[in-house]
Design a protein around this nucleic acid. Structure first.
Lengths: 230, 230
DNA sequence: TCCTCCGATTGACCTGAATCAACGGCGCCG
DNA sequence: CGGCGCCGTTGATTCAGGTCAATCGGAGGA
């Protein structure tokens, strides 16, 4: 039955209240068409909800610092994480009127908040912006397709793929500093926390990785990991 | 090891040769900006390749009749089907320059072939077209996200979800005429052909469905299926 | 009509990951 | 500085689905 996180043992979520939607800073200068310059940076505390599934998609977001997870909770309580977003990544971009996933800060994070309507209006006039919106959506699509390929593999292959993905996104050489818990990783990979843990130890025993501290992973043998990534 | 289709037992694939790309009909009238009116309908035989992974994405396609599968083959030979496309569906739309999946006709099919460059050029001038391209990509994104949610479920839930999805897309009441084989279904759901077969029999035994012939399925108890779909 | 072939089904058995449970380590707070 | 709670690891056992193998059944061809 693949049980992953059972939401919720009434943990202290939602410190920011149900609706954490900010009002974009009034005095944000109009810097022309650059997406990055629209909207206001906003802090979200660890585990704070940024938006909920089925809420109106009034804003989209760009990570300035920290990391974000998007997820969906199934009827039986299982949680599936759709994506992790790191500094520079844009999330919450929808074409429909509602968010299809929920979003939470994994650690204390700063997020640039951009009004969707402004961007969509701009796109109607400026085809550079229109193209950018399209490209970003297509990028999401590719990510999700890669995610599907992960989900049909064995536990080892999933974990190896995950580590390589993270490593590629945080170009810090062979050392990765994971912002997320084992539970987050498990819910992203469709595994249990125990299997993730065991698999990491296995990879460590075969000298493919080192795990100096639980959130820090050293890729010691990329060839081996790539072989698993198939 | 989740072995699914092992490509290839030298089956008679690719009857159309490696490159089946057509030249759009010369005399296609210029009917303005409507996407549907651009390009030429083209027949593809059962199991014919329409395009291959990593080929330049010169065209996009709209199913007129028949059905199409897109897929990727992993290094170890496993095949993952990314999507099934039915009449009216558009596939092969990429933002990057290359197709990320391969596409084949499941049965003899007719497909409208549309030159991508024409459409992209048009989108640069006509923001109605631009919006349509964006919307179609976003639709794909939602489909793939739903697919992910299927892949983390149990066999029963996957098969039930698949049947409901197909039923919603072919609004023929409670009767579905599947164009694809059990192997195709298995590779779409990340299961084996045996498990798909067994699961269908189970669903039949619990009176959730009927299977008058192997390609024809009757949804006899949607409530039960929806309960599984969770 | 019968034969052949191929897709689908069914059965017996095996295995990888889930489940259930205990324990370890570390940071935080009193 | 000592206890407590959370997160992660490890162990024992179970079970869903994979693997291997035999059989079934319907469509096409001689």
């Amino acid at each position: 039955m693949l049980t992953q996180t059972m939401i919720h043992r009434s943990s202290s979520r939602h410190p920011a209240g149900h609706h954490a939607h900010p009002v974009p800073a009034v005095n944000s200068h109009s810097f022309g068409t650059s997406i990055e310059l629209m909207g206001a940076p906003m802090p979200f505390a660890r585990n704070a909800e940024i938006y909920g599934e089925n809420e109106p998609a009034e804003y989209l977001y760009k990570v300035v610092s920290g990391s974000i997870r998007t997820y969906k909770v199934l009827n039986d309580g299982r949680r599936q994480i759709g994506a992790f977003y790191l500094p520079g990544d844009v999330f919450g971009l929808e074409v429909g009127d509602e968010h299809t996933f929920s979003a939470e800060a994994i650690v204390n994070s700063k997020v640039l908040v951009i009004k969707r309507s402004a961007l969509v209006n701009l796109a109607a006039r400026d085809n550079e912006t229109a193209r950018k919106l399209w490209t970003m959506t297509a990028g999401e699509l590719q990510r999700v397709q890669a995610h599907i390929l992960l989900l049909i593999k064995t536990a080892q292959e999933r974990v190896a793929g995950f580590l390589l993905e993270m490593s590629a996104r945080v170009p810090m050489g062979n050392e990765i500093d994971l912002p997320m818990s084992r539970q987050d990783i498990a819910d992203y990979l469709g595994l249990t926390i125990e299997t993730v843990s065991r698999t990491l130890t296995q990879l460590e025993n075969t000298a493919a990785i080192a795990v100096p501290s639980s959130r820090r992973i050293v890729l010691r043998n990329r060839a081996a990991l790539n072989r698993l990534n198939a």
